[in-house]
């Protein structure tokens, strides 16, 4: 029972981190109709900045710099590539982001090399004991920070002018533009927010119990893609639900993998994808995605 509680807590915390990534992914899709395969490289870039800067300027300024850097990088991608591409088809736009991803990931992995970079966070490997249940402090902090960020984002999405503009342009871009919403700016903002969220997620993917940031951190971040799609690619609540489902499944499958030895080593890593396939078989638009209907 204790193991189960520990696994569940860890899973929820990881799920919150995945939700941060998936949320950024969904915002970009809503604002600019691009499926952003470069998301993992934005995340890696943010994490890399934090890891690179913290010895010289301290952890919190470094985190701020990482967040700002990833947001800026997101803006650059939107401004230099997405906005200028004349491709009408969504698939082609998605492939451009793959091109961007190849460029960024190649450069970043070259910079990182075979190093495992410490993030310099103040929580290190301290463990919090709640009765019989013990959980790493980093996980508790991840849950708290992700919770705060997600709540703040959802409130902003609902009540601020920026949020209204974003929702309006996602609903009907042309009408929103006629009402004076500047679509370019909305889309730029979405990429910035997504980059910033990804950088925060990078921090929590690379702290204890993981050894640190290395070249494979981007691959771990890919698990947020199933989170986004199983919740529904155009639903922010769906991204949260998807993130939690992915996090908890992964934690439980990894924790009990000795009981499931017949599935092979490392089943926890592929569990998110299995869950995604099962859900897509039942609901092709995801759990909370809008089913597309066309009147002819």
């Amino acid at each position: 029972m204790t193991t189960f509680a520990e696994l569940l807590l860890n899973g929820i915390s990881m799920g919150a981190v995945y939700a941060l990534i998936a949320l950024g992914f969904v915002i970009i899709f809503k604002a600019s109709e691009v499926v952003n395969f470069a998301h993992a490289s934005l995340l890696l870039a943010g994490g890399f900045l934090v890891a690179e800067l913290h010895p010289s300027i301290g952890f919190w300024p470094a985190l701020l710099a990482g967040v700002a850097g990833a947001a800026l990088l997101g803006c650059l991608v939107e401004f230099l590539v997405i906005r200028r591409s004349k491709a009408a088809s969504h698939s082609v736009l998605a492939i451009v982001t793959i091109g961007v991803d190849i460029i960024l990931v190649t450069e970043l992995t070259r910079q990182i090399g075979t190093d495992v970079m410490a993030m310099g966070d103040p929580w290190r490997d301290k463990v919090l004991h709640l009765g019989p249940v013990s959980i790493a402090q980093t996980r508790v902090v991840a849950l708290l920070i992700a919770g705060v960020l997600i709540t703040a984002f959802l409130l902003a999405f609902k009540y601020t002018g920026w949020g209204v503009a974003m929702r309006a342009s996602a609903e009907d871009g042309e009408t929103a533009a006629l009402m004076g919403v500047r679509l370019g700016r909305v889309s730029l903002g979405a990429w910035a927010v997504a980059g910033a969220l990804a950088a925060v997620a990078a921090l929590f993917l690379a702290v204890f119990p993981t050894p640190g940031l290395d070249r494979t951190t981007g691959v771990i971040a890919l698990k947020a893609f199933p989170a986004a799609i199983l919740g529904g690619l155009d639903s922010t609540t769906g991204a949260l639900a998807g993130g939690l489902i992915v996090g908890v499944t992964e934690a439980l499958m990894t924790g009990y993998q000795s009981e499931m030895a017949f599935l092979g080593r490392g089943i926890g890593d592929v569990a998110p994808y299995l869950v995604m396939i099962i859900i897509l078989l039942v609901r092709p638009a995801g759990l909370l995605g809008t089913r597309e209907l066309t009147r002819v």
Partner: peptide, 21 residues
């Protein structure tokens, strides 16, 4: 379209899992 792109990511990771195991 791109929806399928993400779904097919699953094939890669499941495939790698099977190949190694």
């Amino acid at each position: 379209g791109a929806y399928l792109g993400i779904a097919t990511l699953a094939l890669i990771f499941l495939g790698q899992h099977v190949l190694f195991n």
